[in-house]
Nucleic acid binder design. Structure first.
Lengths: 340, 340
DNA sequence: TCCTGGCACTCGACTCTAGCGAGTGCCAGT
DNA sequence: ACTGGCACTCGCTAGAGTCGAGTGCCAGGA
C-alpha cells in the first residue's frame, strides 16, 4: 500500500515538529501548526496508517507519535529538500578556514568548524595516504645503523618512520639511497608504489643491497600495511545537548565508539565520490552507534577523493541543514587543498 | 586546633569508604568496617569536629558524611601512601608500550594505556618542541616560489611548514640554503635557536638573502611563536562511569574543557621536574573543571622534562592508585624515549 | 467514499501523604 | 574521655488520587 500525498505531508510535519520540539507530537498540535486543511481526526487516521507501515510509533499509549528510523529515512529520501546555507554560515566557513598554515591546521579548523555549525560531533579524516602521491623522500642518519625515513606527500602530509639497518652504512651511501628512492618513487601515487619498490630492490646490487632491502620493507609497511590513516574529532560536548533525552541516558557506548579510530574510519572512510551518505539509527553497522545518525561524504579537489568527513548526532537531527553544511564544508575543504 | 590521630584515622576511613562505595558514609558503617576501637558515638563526635574544620560535609541533615575538597587534600598530603603497582599492571605497561614504531605510536599507546589503567580520562602531551633539539632540517621545493620546511627533532617529532618565497629560487640555491641552516642549527635546543637564526640572516648576503629572510621568519614562527604543542586524549567514555553521580549530571563543561588544547596544556604542561601534581576540585584554575581532580606529572629521560601527562577524573577518585599509575607510566615513557 | 465531530478510554506525569530507616546531636552515666 | 540511649531529622519509597494530552472508534454528513 502506497501512501498518498497527505499522509506524506503528515509524516513530514511529524518529523519537523519532533526535531524542533523533541517531544512526541499529537494530532491536535499538528493541525494547529501546519496548514493541513483537515481535522485532527483525519490526521489521526493517517497516523494510524503510518504507524502500521512502521514510519512512526507511540512511545506509550496515549502519547503523541515519534518518527522511527524508517520514518526518518523516508523523510530524508523523499520529503526534504536540502536547505541552502545562510550567508552567515557561508561567511563563517570562509573566515574559519582562511589562514590555515599547514595541513594539520586545515584539518583542525575544519573539524571544529563542522562541529560548531552543525552543533554535533564532527569527524574529519586526513587526506588518505593511498590516494596521495609521493613528493619527496628524505633519509636522515640518526646513527650509523639507524635512519629516519621522512615521506612528504602532495597533500602536505608528512610521515616518518625509524629504519633499523642490518649494519653500519657510510654517509655517502645514504645519499645514494636517497637519490635512488626519490628518482623512482617521486610523483607516483602511493597505491601504485609497491611494485616499484620491489623493482628498486632488484635493481640494486653490491653493498647497498642489504640496506635497500630493509628500507623497502619499512617503505612498504608505511605505504600499505599499516594504513596510516589519521582522524580528527571535535564537538563531543554536543552529545550532551538535549539533556539525556537522546541516547536514552547513556553516552557511554557512543563515546567509546568515537575513541576507536578504526570505527571512525569505517564511518566516514568508504565514501563514493561526492555522494552524501546518511545512515540513520539501525542502519549503522556499528552497534554502539545504533542510536545515532551519521552524515558523511568524501572531499577532495574536483572528483578526486582525498578523504572523508562527516558528523555524528542523534537520529533526531535536522537532516536538511546538516546535510547542507557537511556538503558545503566538504566542497570548501576540497578546493582549499587543491590550491596546495 | 589540630586534629589528633584518631580523627585523622576517621577521615582516612571516610575517604576510603566513600571512594569505594560512592555513598555518604555514616558512623555505624565506619566502625563496622574499620577497626577503630571506639563506638559510633565517639566517631560521631570526631566527625562533628572534622565537619567544623571543613574536611567533610553532610549532603543533607541525617545522611552520612562526604569528604570535601579540603578533606581529599589532607588525605592526599598526609594520610595516604602511594599504592605500589600490582605486577599485572607493571606487565601491562611493558606489554602495551613495547613495539611502538614511532613517536605518534608511543604517544597514542601511552594515552590509551593510562586511560585503561586508571579508568579515567588520560592526557599526554607530545614532547615539547622548546625542550628538544634540532636533528635535521629539510627544504623540499614545491614550486619555484614555494618550499616545504621539514624539521626533525631528537624526540622524533617532525614539523612541517610551507614557505612562500618572495621570488623564484633556483634549485642550487635551495641546496645552499639547506646546508646553511643545517650547519648552524642542528644540535641546538629549540629554545636557544632564535638568536642563531638571526645571526644566520646577518651572515647571508647576495641573492640568497631575501629567501633566507623569509625562511627565518617561518623558522622563528615554527620554533617559538606558534608554540606547536600537541596533545593526545583518551578515555572520555570513563567520565560516564558512576552514572550521573559524579559531576552532578552534566558532563558538558568537562567535555568542553577537554576539547580545548590550550586548557589541556595548562593542565599538564607546567610541571616541575619529576614532581607529581594533584589538583583537587576547586584548586583547579579552569572553571569547567572545578568538579574534577587532575593528577599530572612531567616525563622525560632522567631529570630532563620533555612534556607532561596526567589524568582527569572525579574528585572522588582513588588517589593512591592513580598517583602510582601516573608516575609509573611517566617513568616508563621517559625511559622509552631516552632509548631513541 | 472520504472526512468530521463527538465521546469514552488509556495511561504517563505530577502531587500528596504516610511510613520507614539511616544517620545525627545531645546528654547523662561510667 | 568514651559510651549507650534517645529523640529528632529528613530523604527515599510506595501507594492513591487527579489531570490531561492523546488516542481509537463510530455515526453522521459532504
Amino acid at each position: 500500500m502506497s501512501l498518498d500525498d497527505r499522509k506524506l505531508a503528515v509524516l513530514r510535519a511529524i518529523v519537523e515538529d519532533y526535531v524542533a520540539t523533541q517531544e512526541p507530537v499529537g494530532s491536535k498540535m499538528l493541525v494547529e501548526r501546519h496548514q493541513l486543511g483537515v481535522s485532527p481526526a483525519t490526521v489521526r487516521n493517517d497516523m494510524a496508517v503510518l504507524e502500521e507501515e512502521g514510519y512512526i510509533r507511540q512511545p506509550h499509549t496515549s502519547a503523541g507519535r515519534v518518527p522511527t528510523d524508517r520514518g526518518y529515512r523516508l523523510f530524508v529520501d523523499r520529503l526534504s529538500r536540502v536547505k541552502p546555507l545562510t550567508p552567515a554560515e557561508r561567511r563563517a566557513i570562509e573566515r574559519f578556514l582562511v589562514g590555515a598554515v599547514d595541513l594539520d591546521d586545515v584539518v583542525h579548523r575544519t573539524v571544529r568548524l563542522l562541529a560548531q555549525l552543525t552543533r554535533q560531533v564532527a569527524v574529519v579524516q586526513y587526506p588518505s595516504l593511498a590516494r596521495s602521491s609521493v613528493r619527496h623522500l628524505e633519509l636522515v642518519p640518526i646513527s650509523t645503523t639507524r635512519l629516519m625515513l621522512v615521506m612528504i606527500v602532495d597533500t602536505g602530509r608528512v610521515e616518518q618512520r625509524l629504519v633499523e639497518l642490518p649494519g653500519p652504512i657510510p654517509p655517502d651511501d645514504v645519499i645514494d639511497l636517497r637519490q635512488l628512492v626519490n628518482e623512482k618513487l617521486v610523483g607516483t601515487r602511493l597505491a601504485d608504489t609497491p611494485p616499484l619498490v620491489q623493482a628498486l630492490v632488484d635493481e640494486v646490487s653490491g653493498e647497498l643491497r642489504p640496506a635497500m632491502i630493509t628500507l623497502s620493507t619499512v617503505l612498504l609497511e608505511t605505504l600499505v600495511e599499516r594504513h596510516e590513516e589519521r582522524i580528527a574529532l571535535a564537538g563531543t560536548a554536543n552529545l550532551t545537548r538535549g539533556g539525556l533525552l537522546d541516547f536514552q541516558g547513556s553516552l557511554r557506548p557512543i563515546l567509546e565508539a568515537l575513541e576507536e579510530e578504526v570505527v571512525l574510519l569505517k564511518l566516514i572512510g568508504e565514501v563514493e565520490p561526492s555522494a552524501m551518505r546518511v545512515r540513520i539509527g539501525d542502519e549503522n553497522e556499528i552497534d554502539n552507534l545504533r542510536a545515532t545518525s551519521v552524515v558523511s561524504t568524501g572531499y577532495g579537489p574536483g572528483v578526486t577523493i582525498l578523504g572523508g568527513l562527516g558528523v555524528v548526532g542523534p537520529t533526531r537531527m535536522d537532516y536538511p541543514s546538516t546535510i547542507a553544511t557537511v556538503r558545503a564544508v566538504a566542497r570548501y575543504v576540497g578546493d582549499l587543498l587543491a590550491q596546495n
